[in-house]
Write a protein that binds this DNA or RNA. Structure first.
Length: 573
RNA sequence: GGGGGUGUGGUGAAGCUUGGCCGUUCACGCCGGCCUGUCAAGCCGGAGGUCGCGGGUUCGAAUCCCGUCAUCCCCGCCA
């Protein structure tokens, strides 16, 4: 039996032909003698006219099959908002293939039901045109990636999803082993070591659309499991990696947006990015850059600034442009700055007569006020915000305020950027060092790393779009001795190095080619390109912020017997 | 671990600031009826809610307070 001869979206040119369509009742407009039914299938919507046919038992989202004849719509009834709006199907018969219960929510892009309910009935949510479009976009993105990389000679290779746990980095998702009770696999946080092993294995050009798992708290752009384009190449430097990633991203943007972004992407060093935007994932769609005011304020009488500058701190500011600046906004921004760790926030409004209105104006000399306004290119009406403090605090607080005040809604414009030259290490709270990328990243200068590790730069780079970190990569360490030195600096003892990474250090000893690579989040890229505010809109079956799936009710307790087989006993809370 | 927002018939919203006229209102859906050119069709009628849950304040709580659960956003965390 042939269910249908055509898709709903394809009937425009078929006037006079007999067709059979199958899909859902998206709308029914019953005029008594005549009824209009919008039938929706995966391709789109077509109007069916039932003249003299019984339609009382057709309800929302009933699955139906319509046989009839395509005809041009009468004069004056063309619907310009519908791609098939010039034609309609005059139905000879309408058959209910499958009725539907009353819906838990309207399948309408104009209203969003509560997200928990949408997840509980995700199969209905995904029928909504916007969600269906996101599924298609995702498929096209993956297809574009494969096409571009296969053209460049890459091999798509799968790596295990049951791997050895590594305590570094994110929390692992653990899987107990039945055959070795008391031992656990981890789900991969990324295929990092396996792709390096593939370089040692002679693959030279590897990629994978890889599912990754990180058991950390959720955010709008973070889920427990997510999908990355993971790739790696041998005999590669930064430029080769970045060019390849740019090609893959450009192919995706081309297929989803219909135009390619300008290549190459601009590049910022991590230092520049922090100094100018207060973030390592800068949103370059707007200016409002952070400006250093320390030299303008050298020798100032104002204690608040002078004390900071004497203790090696900085004073920096942003010009937020001309805006209304009621007391309530000043208070709100001050609160925000304090919550982010600033001692306070200094605001200044440039009055029409160019005088500064500010709580601290009376403490600042005239030449200092003038210098501040000039440094921030202030015009009458502009609101300036200043933060004094340690460099890192000052720039990150201003970076956050910059986003609060200037960030565009949505993601219509795209501003890709490479952020390069990340620090090799960061200090942890307890004074130890940790890696800022991952422990297999090559330093730019081995001598600097040994002697002044906190000043050492890594051969690591991120790609960012509109303030969203898409992914990161690096040139890897390919000498076992250097790898050991990095482990030493990270405070991993020789015994630990051997027990946890001995197998990998051994592999490095067999003629490892220099190599490097990258991984970026496909969910995030599609999210931005589809102008979605969170990653769940582009993941077919995501979880809530507490890792719960309201449809299948996972996670769930398991049988005593299952636990016993695994040698697991639960502890009462 | 912390901060903030939300929770009101199946769905979306208003009501909460300032307690009583409130299980009151609007739209969609659902049920019944009318209607031959609509496209979120229209008109008439109807059903449907322990106002997330628990406790407290009060003569009286959807509304105020405390706790708790769910969900969303953010900080921490996320190589």
């Amino acid at each position: 039996m042939i269910f249908r001869t055509h898709m709903a979206a394809d009937i425009s040119g078929l006037v006079g032909e007999s067709v059979s369509l199958a899909g859902w009742v998206a709308r029914r407009r019953d005029h008594g003698g005549i009824t209009f039914i919008d039938i929706r299938d995966a391709s789109g919507i077509a109007q069916v006219v039932a003249d003299g046919l019984a339609t009382e038992d057709l309800r929302m989202e009933f699955c139906i099959r319509v046989m009839g004849t395509v005809r041009a719509r009468p004069e004056g009834t063309i619907n310009a908002d519908l791609p098939t709006g010039t034609v309609e199907v005059a139905a000879d018969s309408i058959e209910v293939l499958s009725p539907s219960d009353p819906l838990p929510f309207m399948l309408d892009d104009r209203v969003d039901a509560d997200e928990r309910t949408r997840l509980e009935y995700r199969y209905l949510d995904l029928r909504r045109p916007r969600m269906a479009a996101n599924l298609r976009a995702r498929s096209k993105a993956v297809s574009a990636i494969r096409r571009s990389l296969e053209g460049l000679g890459f091999l798509e290779i799968e790596t295990p999803t049951l791997v050895r746990s590594t305590p570094e980095g994110a929390r692992d998702v653990l899987v107990p082993s039945r055959l070795r009770p008391g031992s656990f696999y981890a789900l991969p946080q990324s295929p990092q070591l396996f792709k390096q092993l593939l370089m040692i294995a002679g693959v030279e050009r590897y990629f994978q659309i890889a599912r990754c798992y990180r058991d950390e708290d959720f955010r709008a752009d973070r889920q427990l499991e997510f999908t990355q384009l993971d790739l790696e190449g041998a005999y590669w430097g930064e430029n080769e990696v970045q060019t390849t990633i740019e090609a893959a991203i450009a192919a995706v943007v081309q297929d989803l947006r219909g135009e390619s972004p300008p290549l190459p992407f601009p590049r910022l060093t991590w230092q520049e990015s922090m100094d100018r935007y207060g973030a390592d994932k800068p949103d370059l769609r707007f200016g409002m850059e952070i400006v250093d005011l320390s030299s303008e304020l050298t020798g100032t009488e104002f204690r608040g600034f002078a004390a900071t500058l004497e203790s090696n701190g900085v004073v920096r500011g942003i010009n937020t442009g001309a805006r209304e600046f009621p007391r309530s906004l000043a208070d709100k921004l001050t609160e925000e700055a304090k919550a982010l760790g600033a001692a306070g926030l200094v605001w200044m409004v440039i009055e029409p007569d160019s005088q500064l209105r500010s709580p601290v104006a009376k403490f600042l000399a005239a030449h200092e006020q003038k210098a501040i306004v000039e440094a921030l290119a202030g015009q009458p009406g502009d609101v300036l915000l200043l933060v004094a403090g340690p460099w890192r605090t000052a720039v990150t607080v201003l970076g956050q305020l910059r986003l609060s005040l200037g960030r565009p809604e949505g993601h219509r414009d795209l501003a890709f950027v490479w952020v390069t030259d990340f620090p090799m290490f960061e200090e942890t709270g307890d004074g130890n060092l940790t890696f800022s990328h991952h422990p297999f990243t090559s330093p730019q200068d081995v001598e600097v790393m040994r002697n002044r590790p906190l000043e050492a730069k890594a051969r690591a780079y991120d790609v960012v779009v509109n303030g969203v970190e898409l992914g990161s990569g690096s040139i890897r360490i390919h000498h076992p001795d250097l790898q050991r030195q990095v482990f030493d600096i990270l405070g991993i003892s020789a015994e630990e190095q051997e027990s946890r990474f001995g197998w990998f250090l051994r592999a490095l000893r067999y003629g490892t080619p220099p190599h490097g690579g990258f991984a970026f989040g496909i969910d995030r890229l599609v999210m931005v390109l589809q102008e979605e505010a969170n990653i769940r809109q582009v993941i077919p079956f995501p979880k809530t912020q507490t890792g719960h799936d309201p449809m299948t009710m996972s996670p769930s307790p398991v049988d005593e017997g299952q636990l016993a087989e695994l040698g697991i006993a639960l502890v009462e809370e």
